[in-house]
Amino acid sequence: MKTPENSQMTVEEAEEYGRQMDAKNRELENTHYLEETPVEEKKITPPLSEEEIKKRTGAANYENVQGPGAMNSVNS
């Protein structure tokens, strides 16, 4: 199927193209899963204290997001 990009496909061409894309996607899919292993309790970190959060983010940043008018980040 060698047609210019701006031309329209027939129904048969569109169906064939769809089958080709499905086959290509199936080849690229990563379907190998590792065995599940339980997480050891000692590897789970405890929640951060307020003091630790202030230390990591800066006290001013921490105080700014505590108020009722705090806006969430758009990009996070």
Rank of each mutant, 00 (worst) to 15 (best):
K2N: 04
T3H: 13
T3Q: 10
P4K: 14
E5R: 13
N6W: 11
N6F: 14
S7F: 09
S7E: 06
M9G: 09
M9C: 13
M9W: 12
T10K: 03
V11D: 12
V11E: 15
V11L: 07
E12R: 15
E13M: 13
E13Y: 09
A14P: 03
A14I: 01
A14R: 07
A14G: 08
E15Y: 05
E15D: 11
E16R: 06
Y17T: 05
Y17D: 02
G18Q: 03
R19K: 15
R19S: 07
R19Q: 08
Q20R: 12
Q20I: 11
Q20C: 01
Q20G: 07
M21W: 03
M21D: 00
D22L: 13
D22H: 11
A23R: 10
A23I: 09
A23K: 11
K24C: 06
K24F: 03
K24M: 12
K24P: 00
R26Q: 09
R26K: 14
E27Q: 03
L28I: 04
E29H: 06
E29R: 12
E29C: 02
N30F: 09
N30P: 03
T31Y: 02
T31M: 04
H32Y: 02
H32Q: 06
Y33N: 13
Y33C: 14
E35V: 03
E36I: 02
E36A: 07
E36S: 04
T37V: 13
P38L: 03
V39M: 15
V39L: 08
E40H: 14
E41P: 06
K42W: 09
K43V: 10
I44T: 08
T45G: 08
T45V: 11
T45A: 06
P46M: 10
P46T: 13
P47S: 04
P47T: 06
L48V: 10
L48R: 12
S49I: 03
S49M: 09
E50H: 00
E50R: 08
E51I: 04
E52A: 12
E52R: 14
I53V: 14
I53K: 01
K55P: 00
T57L: 06
T57P: 03
T57H: 00
G58K: 00
N61C: 08
N61T: 09
Y62T: 05
Y62Q: 06
Y62I: 04
E63A: 07
N64T: 04
N64Q: 11
N64Y: 07
N64L: 06
V65H: 12
V65W: 08
V65Q: 00
Q66E: 03
Q66A: 01
G67M: 00
P68R: 02
G69A: 12
A70S: 13
N72V: 11
N72D: 14
S73R: 15
S73P: 01
V74R: 14
V74G: 00
N75Y: 10
N75G: 12
N75A: 15
